[in-house]
């Protein structure tokens, strides 16, 4: 039983790495622009397919494809989306951008269908079948690599956000857009960069998940919901929050199979999403702050 728990725990942590990469993109866009990006799922799905083309078609190293090639492409895609679709409705009520980006998601799905057909695809790499044992817990090399790549990307991004001018400007805009503007930050440009970065992260997360899971043009929807759940749990402000949210969700999902059918795993995450939205709209950080505030008083 303890061994079983250890295996499940390791598996949850590895999954959490991928979740964090996905959610951070969503959190970034929401934090800076207050836009809920429903095309996030589309970017995850397209990321998976671009990786498929690069790895299976062009025989590229899977991790070079996912880390070096995919993110810049999706950064450009994100900038394009922001300029063409999001900017014109920035002044409209938030529901307009939500529906608009939903339309973009539908279009992305259809484009994927036309190019790659609706067949479910998998990517099998030399790493897929490799594994080693950590004590009695078997660890798959592929999953570990995906996890590490995700975590390193987030750490690098964290450095970028805290150390560079652009990163600080993004954070300032996220905290108070009007004040940032007053301080001389070109918030229009920041919006664009944030949307680009968010989409790049989604694309990369898609490419990484494609190395583990199967995908088709509908892929991404449930991961987007999970990302929402994580963002709600962890809040949009901090890396730590997103990491914590990812871990909580991954653990809840993975451990839930001990009591319920594996088929109901997604049910757990959707229920958590709705509950989290209701109980703590500000996420875990707010919950902590609230307790802290009470204690201070």
């Amino acid at each position: 039983m303890t061994l079983n728990l250890a295996i499940l725990f390791v598996s949850a942590v590895l999954v959490a790495g991928v979740y964090a990469t996905m959610s951070y993109g969503l959190a970034l866009i929401f934090g800076v622009m207050k836009v809920i990006n429903l095309s996030h799922a589309g970017a995850i799905m397209l990321g998976a397919y671009v990786a498929y083309v690069l790895i299976v078609g062009l025989k590229m190293n899977p991790f070079i494809a996912a880390v070096v090639v995919v993110p810049p492409l999706f950064f450009l895609l994100g900038i394009l989306l922001e300029r063409v679709f999001v900017r014109p409705v920035r002044k409209a009520p938030p529901i307009a951008s939500l529906l608009l980006l939903f339309g973009v998601w539908l279009m992305m799905q259809n484009i994927a269908y036309i190019i790659w057909t609706g067949e479910v695809r998998t990517i099998t790499t030399p790493y897929t079948m490799m594994r080693f044992n950590l004590g009695a817990v078997p660890i798959n090399v592929n999953r570990l690599a995906v996890f590490l790549v995700g975590v390193f990307t987030l750490l690098a991004l964290h450095q970028f956000m805290t150390r560079t001018y652009l990163g600080k400007a993004i954070r300032a805009t996220a905290q108070d857009s009007a004040a940032a503007k007053l301080a001389g930050i070109n918030t229009d440009q920041i919006d664009m960069v944030a949307f680009g970065l968010g989409t790049a992260l989604a694309g990369m997360a898609g490419a990484l998940t494609a190395l583990i899971y199967a995908f088709d043009p509908n892929f991404g929807g449930s991961y987007m919901l999970k990302s929402f759940c994580i963002v709600v749990l962890g809040g949009v402000e901090s890396f730590l929050g997103v990491a914590l949210g990812s871990l909580i969700l991954a653990l809840a999902e993975t451990l839930s199979v001990l009591w319920i059918r594996a088929g109901l795993q997604d049910f757990v995450s959707f229920v958590i999403l709705v509950l989290a939205l209701l109980v703590m709209p500000g996420g875990l950080p707010e919950l902590f702050q609230r307790r802290f505030a009470v204690r201070q008083r």
């Binding site: 799905q109 190019i115 609706g118 929807g221």
Partner: peptide
Amino acid sequence: MSREIKYPQSF
């Protein structure tokens, strides 16, 4: 959302 929307496939 595994098999929600069923769409056309490519030519």
